[in-house]
């Protein structure tokens, strides 16, 4: 039973409801749809009191509760908005980072390509230089070998010539020639002053 029922019942006892009989002695009851007048009065008063009490004591609590809930929901909405903004910022950052990564990737690729081309060019240049050096060295070695062989040949010719000169001169110097050389020397030194 709710509070209104209790009050109505109480009113009924307090009001000492009067029993009405019809002409035939049957108990006449009031409308099944409408309560008794005192019940309406008492019920109305009770309802007013209840409503007042509810307004006086319950409403602030409810209002406070609603406000708290509203505030909480607002906070949640704010937090969600902040989270959304943060997420958007982060997404922006990620997109930017992705863009940066793409740019970095492009830069690295370009750099690697340039470096590879540089290495290739350098390698080609070095190869050409080395080939030229090898050719020059080979030419120099061939020239040196030619010169060396020529020198050795000249030395051998000189040695053989010297030996031949020694042999020929020594063999041709007979006693008369020796005496002639000595006399010539004496004459030459004697003539010198």
């Amino acid at each position: 039973m709710n509070v209104l029922g209790i009050i109505a019942t109480t009113g009924r006892f307090v009001g000492a409801e009067e029993v009405v009989l019809d002409s035939e002695g049957n108990v006449v009851t009031h409308s099944p749809w409408l309560p008794e007048t005192p019940e309406i009065i008492w019920g109305g008063l009770a309802s007013l009191i209840i409503f007042y009490a509810l307004y006086k004591f319950g409403w602030p609590q409810m209002k406070k509760s609603f406000n708290a809930r509203t505030e909480r929901i607002q906070k949640e909405l704010d937090a969600a908005a902040a989270d959304k903004a943060a997420a958007a910022t982060e997404a922006q950052g990620i997109r930017q980072a992705k863009g940066d990564i793409e740019a970095e990737r492009g830069r690295i690729m370009a750099e690697a390509k340039a470096q590879a081309e540089s290495i290739l060019a350098e390698g080609r240049t070095r190869l050409v230089t080395e080939v030229a050096e090898l050719e020059a060295r080979s030419a120099a070695e061939i020239e040196a070998s030619r010169g060396r062989v020529g020198d050795e040949l000249r030395a051998e010719i000189s040695r053989l010539s010297s030996a031949a000169v020694d042999h020929v001169v020594s063999g041709s110097l007979d006693d008369a020639t020796q005496q002639e050389l000595i006399e010539n020397f004496i004459a030459r030194v004697g003539a010198a002053q």
């Binding site: 001169v169 110097l173 050389l181 010539n184 020397f185 030194v189």
Partner: peptide, 18 residues
């Protein structure tokens, strides 16, 4: 000397050798 004469007088050398 092989032939001829080499004369040395002090620091002077007169060389007429083969």
């Amino acid at each position: 000397v092989i032939g001829g004469v080499v004369a040395t007088v002090g620091d002077t050398v007169i060389d007429g050798s083969v």
